[in-house]
Amino acid sequence: MAVSVHKNQTQSTRAWTLTANPHEIQRWRQAVAEALRRWGASREAIDLACLGVSELLSNVIKHVDDPRCRLRVRRVGERIVVQLIDRSPTPPSFEAPDWDSESGRGLWMLREMCAQFGWEKVPSQLGAKCVWFSCALTNKVER
């Protein structure tokens, strides 16, 4: 387990360099949840962020040859932004899933649940990309 917490963290940013591993996804969900709790996030926002962390890390494990990545969560005003930088240039697939398949729905569902969702190439790291999503800090589920 290779992990480093970046020393330049602020009260509004938490970031970790890690090696994606299926046995440690819960650990990263808890780390993100703790950061969001400190920022006063709603239960719904924390749950959505944790779901997203699981999905993004699972995709690194499943689709990226090099599991080293960087997870970052930021508070930007009244929004939460979760970013995962991996070492693959391959864009994520956001197509409507095959509902009869055992997998392949996670990113599509996350995109539908978040206020914003996207990806971009990371110019400073050849062959890297950042997949990100955001939601309101006090995201409430409409009933």
Rank of each mutant, 00 (worst) to 15 (best):
M113R: 03
L126M: 15
R72Y: 01
W28V: 02
L71N: 01
N8Y: 08
S134G: 15
D66I: 10
H6G: 14
R14E: 07
S12N: 11
S93L: 12
R68S: 09
L51S: 06
W119V: 11
R68W: 05
S42R: 11
I80M: 00
W108D: 03
D66A: 05
I46Q: 00
F117R: 04
F94A: 07
R68D: 11
W119M: 08
E44S: 04
Q26H: 10
G40E: 01
K140S: 10
A31Y: 01
S4L: 14
T10W: 04
V131D: 08
S4T: 13
A115R: 06
E34N: 13
V32D: 09
E24V: 06
P89A: 15
R87H: 15
S103W: 03
R75P: 08
A35R: 12
A128V: 01
S42M: 07
F94R: 14
R74D: 05
R29S: 07
W119F: 09
D86L: 06
N21V: 08
I25K: 12
R14K: 10
Q83I: 10
T19R: 12
V76W: 05
C50D: 05
D86F: 03
V76E: 13
C69P: 07
S12H: 15
K62N: 14
A96Q: 14
E142T: 04
L84P: 09
C50N: 07
R37N: 13
L84S: 01
D98L: 08
L57H: 10
V131Y: 00
Q26D: 13
G106Q: 04
R111H: 14
V131H: 14
C69I: 01
I85F: 13
S101V: 03
M113T: 02
R143H: 10
S58Q: 12
L71S: 01
S93F: 12
D100I: 10
W108T: 11
V141A: 03
E78R: 13
K140Q: 09
L57G: 05
G77C: 03
Q30N: 11
L56Q: 03
E102H: 14
R68C: 06
V76I: 15
R74T: 12
S93H: 02
H63Q: 08
I80A: 04
Q9W: 02
Q30T: 11
K121F: 12
I80N: 00
R105D: 09
R37M: 02
L51M: 15
E142Y: 05
P67R: 09
D100S: 13
V81L: 12
S134N: 08
G104A: 11
S93N: 14
H23R: 15
L107F: 07
L18C: 00
A128I: 01
Q125V: 14
R143V: 14
S88N: 12
R68M: 11
V82F: 05
T10K: 07
V32R: 06
R79C: 04
S88D: 07
A33L: 03
L126V: 10
E78W: 07
A20H: 04
L107N: 07
A96L: 11
E102I: 14
W108C: 05
L71G: 01
T90E: 15
Q11R: 09
P67N: 11
C114R: 06
D86W: 04
A2L: 05
A136W: 09
V5Y: 06
L48K: 01
W39D: 13
S93K: 09
F133V: 10
W28D: 07
A31C: 09
R68Q: 10
V73G: 13
R111L: 01
R79I: 00
